[in-house]
């Protein structure tokens, strides 16, 4: 039994001018502790798919099954990390991190302490009383990571969380997210358009084709690369090989007139 099962999902967007199919009959699954990336050209429904899995959007057809149960509303088992941090500027760092616990009525001495410990691990303990606009972009995204992890989700949905950061910060955060997830044995689904990031972080890379989104190919990353930290994986001689293969596939998808 897989941890997450996406079962024959289709989604149609309705506007005044047309009904557009964003995703067509898409299925895949994620095992416990597995890290899967979704890549694909724009218009392949990556973000739509993530919204459906998180329960923010109800698919036109199909089912999302988490740990054997139907999932149709955002729940405790999943954490969602957005492209930008979207920390609330009127809350302190600590209050921002505790938001999820507050919303789910789980603010206890224990959970607060655990969150503060998480902040400490990310090197953010000293700024817990500061406001978001006093922090750098990298720090803010680390706070967002703590906010997502604070509710103790088993699956993390990462919607291009590194794309708004500068290159150096991005590489450091990739390592941090990677090791944090491995340490707690959490599953993750990463949406990205950075092929290198997908290879360096994932166990499996799913390539989607556009209009409507469906699975074009799945790439399994060899164990040897999977175990390396993203930064080291990028420096591995095998890395470039995989990059080339995925690059060619992606390129052909973008050029075909479908």
């Amino acid at each position: 039994m897989s941890f997450l099962q996406v079962n024959a999902i289709s989604h149609v967007y309705l506007t005044k001018t047309e009904a557009k199919e964003a995703i067509s009959n898409l299925s895949f699954s994620i095992e416990e502790g597995e890290f899967v990336s979704l890549i694909g050209p724009s218009g392949c429904g990556k973000s739509t798919l993530l919204s459906i899995i998180s329960g923010l959007l109800t698919p036109t057809e199909g089912k999302v099954i988490v740990e054997g149960k139907n999932s149709n509303q955002p729940g405790k088992s999943m954490g969602y990390m957005l492209q930008q941090d979207y920390l609330f500027p009127w809350k302190t760092i600590k209050e921002n991190c505790l938001l999820g616990l507050k919303l789910t009525n789980r603010l206890t001495k224990d959970t607060i302490e655990r969150t503060l410990k998480l902040l400490d691990q990310m090197g953010l303990y000293d700024v817990r009383h500061a406001y978001p606009d006093q922090l750098s972009g990298g720090m803010r995204q680390r706070v967002a990571l703590v906010r997502t992890l604070a509710t103790g989700p088993d699956l993390l949905l990462l919607d291009e969380p590194f794309s708004a950061l500068d290159y150096q910060t991005k590489l450091k955060l990739e390592d941090l997210v990677f090791s944090t997830l491995k340490e707690h044995n959490k599953s993750a689904l990463l949406v990205t358009h950075d092929i290198g990031e997908a290879i360096a972080m994932s166990d499996r890379v799913i390539l989607l084709s556009p209009r409507p989104g469906k699975i074009a190919r799945t790439f399994h990353i060899p164990a040897h690369l999977r175990e390396l930290l993203p930064f080291d994986a990028r420096n591995d001689p095998k890395f470039a090989e995989h990059f080339q293969v995925i690059w060619k596939e992606l390129d052909s998808l973008e050029q075909s007139p479908t």
Partner: peptide
């Protein structure tokens, strides 16, 4: 996206209003 953050934690409409919209 502030609303999206609240909803991703399973927040209801009242929580969306009090935690995001109003402040």
């Amino acid at each position: 996206n502030y609303v999206k953050v609240i909803r991703s934690f399973g927040g209801n409409k009242k929580q969306i209003f009090l935690e995001a919209i109003l402040p």
